[in-house]
Design a protein around this nucleic acid. Structure first.
Lengths: 227, 227, 227, 227
DNA sequence: CATGAATGAGTTTTCATTCAT
DNA sequence: CATGAATGAAAACTCATTCAT
């Protein structure tokens, strides 16, 4: 009856997923995945029914179970897909080019970095939100996620910045944790928890955030509190 | 048959809720609320069954519906209870005394403040986690929550710190937003998202965080970027 | 908390039941019976909850079960009470006096008779309605009810009318059945099935009904169709 | 597992409903409707469980709720179905042909009319009984029902009888009300309230009823009581 | 006695999953 | 393959009945 949902204003994550899956899945199967991500993200896994997914994807309920043995399996596939193809790629997206460019200051570098991440985050809020909100309920997924997180070559990035003389040599590793937590807080509050509250003023906020963190880093190292 | 669950190692939030509700509710009804908070927090509203709640509270399912017309209503009552009696009290707990004490430096003040908040947060993670993880799915609750958040007299606190010469007069309001976001990030990642990852080292982390933020604030204002 | 319901504008059936039960039951127990009759009559036995009865009677649910082992028993007691003290008394109420009075015509006699019955019916619609609407679902009660119905000394009434020369000697018994059915139809449609449709014009309708039935009876007997 | 109930001795109402619904509903869905009518009619809406309906229809409980959002909705659909396809069609069934035929007397006409109606009533007692016994509890349905009842072109029928000289010109409209009430009484007592009491002798009773009503009508008009 | 919280068996309703078409 | 009716197990919810206070 209904057509597989034709999403005209495709978000990056939709485009990316579609591209990845085009060869291995039918249009309907892709529509199921996209609809699932949207619904799981908006309401949480347990609050979404397979009927709802089928309706939104424009397919029959049977089509879901043709591909996935259970709702749980569909969910697991989605979480993996998002993690591997959306979330972690987003974190590292375009960093190589960024590190190659010469920057006048750490501030300038951060500015560009943050603006990039913010755009990517916005384009992919839906799946990221799903990932982050379901992780707390799934210890095994959390463990895997953290393991994956640690693989990010942050030290290389640090070294690169130091090589560029953007970061003092003595700056400690500890502030990386802190910096990451602050970044997470910035994105989580802005894009996930209270999106309507922070509807605009993003650029200025990034500006403030960068000033804050850069002077935070500088002050710290200057003070010789590095360990 | 079964006894209403006797929770020996009571957390602060349980003690507090029990104290508040003792007069208006029976022991069993209080047990229902406590069990609900624990389960909703651990698995999310939709993934918890009323049977499960009843079992954990040591009551019959009927007892839940005697007091609450629906699972939804029970949930709404809990969210309100947590918000009004746990979360917002926690944010402001003991601040009056804190602001009265003389502090040698902003750093010292933050140190004490953060340590306090961290303890309170830990003692109340369960309900806070519930509050924060369900807010994204409920726009109306989010709106109410934000409205409540804005009522916090942050400006008074700022003025008080300035009066104590702990904060330069020129420090801008904007960094408050940033600071709050960073704080949220610190607590969320540590206590809610990856608790097992940050099992220990809290004190040291607070130390780092304080150094980072204080120098962040100082550097910012020094640079004259205040608006 | 609540008082046992004080019904100021008491209907005849309430007064009568109260009078009968005053000695054997407490006020609260009487209130339970009255509330039950009203609710069972309005919604049907199965659609009424004991909680509802308790609330309307202004007593606790426990009080109902102190007196009656079950809702069914309460119902049985009520059906018996209504049948014996309201319905059948109503059918025969004041007939002795009526038969003693001299009437100029059968029409006049019927007029008075019907007007009486209509008033009594109206004053007791609530319990009568309950009786009649529950009978179809209870074969045993129906049997008892019919047995009781047959005991009514209709033949005596007939004889009395004949003695007064109001009815021809040859009038057959069969038309009594018919007459009763017509009467039942008149009352049922008017007072039970579509009360709002026949809100007024009762007197005129009785007038028409009497003319119709009297001429029906006369025409019949005149025609010599009597058996 | 179980087969959808195969009703061999199909009553007219079952045949009719089946015919109407065959195109829009599956066999199981039709079985649900038929089982519901039977059970609701026998025990009243509130006293029937959906489990009971499912068992009698030979389907699972889920099948009921796949089609109807609630037991109430199922009931509403049934009441509408009965009213529109059984009750009102029954009242007017075959009247056109009847009015075309020439009759020697009003008595003869009534005889045929009543015999027809009685047969139809008997073939459809089950749904009609349901309709009539639930109407008193549902004011809105009662209103709709009455509105529908008034649309019946009784005046045309009257005119037709007058044109055939079966009814005197002066016969008043009022006696139509009375006649209808008497008819209702005849059918209600016989087929709904005390079916076992009137197990046989229908033809003779109709005979008596016709004589009674015809002479009632004649006597009335002759007496010049018409308005 | 009266009360109303508590019970648990039963009812309505939901929903992931199956399967005949 | 796709469909959606059908399923049945489990969830939410109701309510007559019990019982401690």
């Amino acid at each position: 009856m209904q057509q597989a949902k034709a999403v005209s204003p495709k978000y990056q994550w939709q485009i990316r997923l579609t591209a990845i899956l085009r060869d291995s899945l039918t249009d309907k199967q892709i529509a199921i995945l996209i609809a699932s991500v949207e619904l799981f993200s908006a309401k949480g896994f347990a609050a979404v029914t397979t009927k709802e997914i089928a309706r939104r994807a424009g397919v029959s309920e049977g089509s879901i179970f043709k591909q996935y043995a259970s709702k749980e399996e569909l969910f697991a596939v989605i979480m993996d897909l998002i993690s591997e193809n959306i979330f972690f790629p987003m974190l590292g997206h375009g960093l190589a080019e960024l590190f190659d460019k010469p920057f006048a200051s750490l501030e300038e570098f951060f500015q560009v970095l943050l603006q990039n991440r913010a755009e990517l985050f916005q384009e992919n809020v839906v799946p990221i939100r799903l990932l982050l909100q379901e992780l707390p309920h799934r210890p095994e997924m959390r463990v895997a996620f953290l393991a994956r997180l640690k693989q990010i070559p942050l030290l290389d990035a640090l070294a690169s910045l130091r090589a560029q003389k953007l970061l003092p040599d003595c700056s400690p590793l500890e502030n990386l944790h802190i910096l990451m937590a602050c970044l997470a807080g910035f994105f989580l509050t802005r894009f996930i928890m209270f999106p309507e509250y922070f509807a605009d003023g993003l650029e200025q906020d990034i500006d403030h955030f960068v000033k804050f963190t850069v002077s935070g880093l500088n002050g710290w190292t200057k003070g010789g509190t590095a360990i």
